[in-house]
Design a protein around this nucleic acid. Structure first.
Length: 188
DNA sequence: CAGTGGATGCTCT
DNA sequence: GAGCATCCACTGT
């Protein structure tokens, strides 16, 4: 099911190449997690991206080396996880929006409350809560504990659509998902 | 189910 | 003071 560890070299490319390849990969944090079924791509020429207006203290890790985490607070309430993927000198990242839970579901349920399996990680804020990811983990490398990222074995059926919850650049088809998965934040 | 609105804490104007 | 890469409870079918 899970392949070899994703290295920094994997992420040192355009997010538009990397993001679709993340669908089907396995994301674990302290051994808790599952299969990535939904991501969105953001680059620095994109008005919807946190890197569009230049580096800020809270967005610094998006401008850092690829293969690291960028964690931000959303709507003052939730944490959201990005995987920084940039070629030389760029600030790009893939927002992880949903997982199909496969590892340590009890830990997720304990953090999320008594939730249906479908709802444990079906959104960017939900999955950070389920995995226990916060700002404290911003900037951590993805190829070392507590993170573990494993490549997918084969190319799964891909769904492509427009991104969710933004007000600028709404027409860009930069949302990728595992077609037909019941664990998406929304259907395509 | 689909649609609506409140919570909540920053940053930026 | 507005706006936000969200979620949940609540309403009405």
């Amino acid at each position: 099911m899970a392949g070899k560890r994703l290295t920094r070299a994997f992420f040192a490319r355009s997010v538009h190449e990397v993001a679709p390849e993340l669908i089907g990969a396995t994301l674990l944090f302290d051994g808790v997690g599952g299969t990535i079924v939904e991501v969105e791509a953001y680059d620095e020429d994109d008005p919807a991206s946190h890197s569009f207006r230049g580096m800020r203290p809270t967005t610094a890790s998006m401008f850092g080396p690829p293969g690291h985490a960028y964690v931000y607070r959303s709507y003052g309430v939730h944490w959201c996880l990005n995987l920084v993927c940039a070629p030389e000198g760029r600030a790009e990242a893939a927002l992880v929006r949903a997982l199909a839970p496969t590892h340590a579901l009890e830990a997720m349920r304990a953090r999320r409350g008594l939730e249906r399996e479908r709802s444990l990680c079906s959104g960017p804020g939900k999955l950070c809560q389920a995995l226990g990811i916060t700002r404290a983990h911003d900037g951590l490398p993805l190829d070392e504990p507590p993170f573990e990222l494993l490549a997918r074995e084969s190319g799964p059926p891909l769904a492509v659509g427009t991104r969710i919850g933004i007000t600028r650049a709404v027409e860009q088809p930069w949302r990728y998902g595992l077609a037909g998965s019941p664990f998406l934040s929304r259907r395509f």
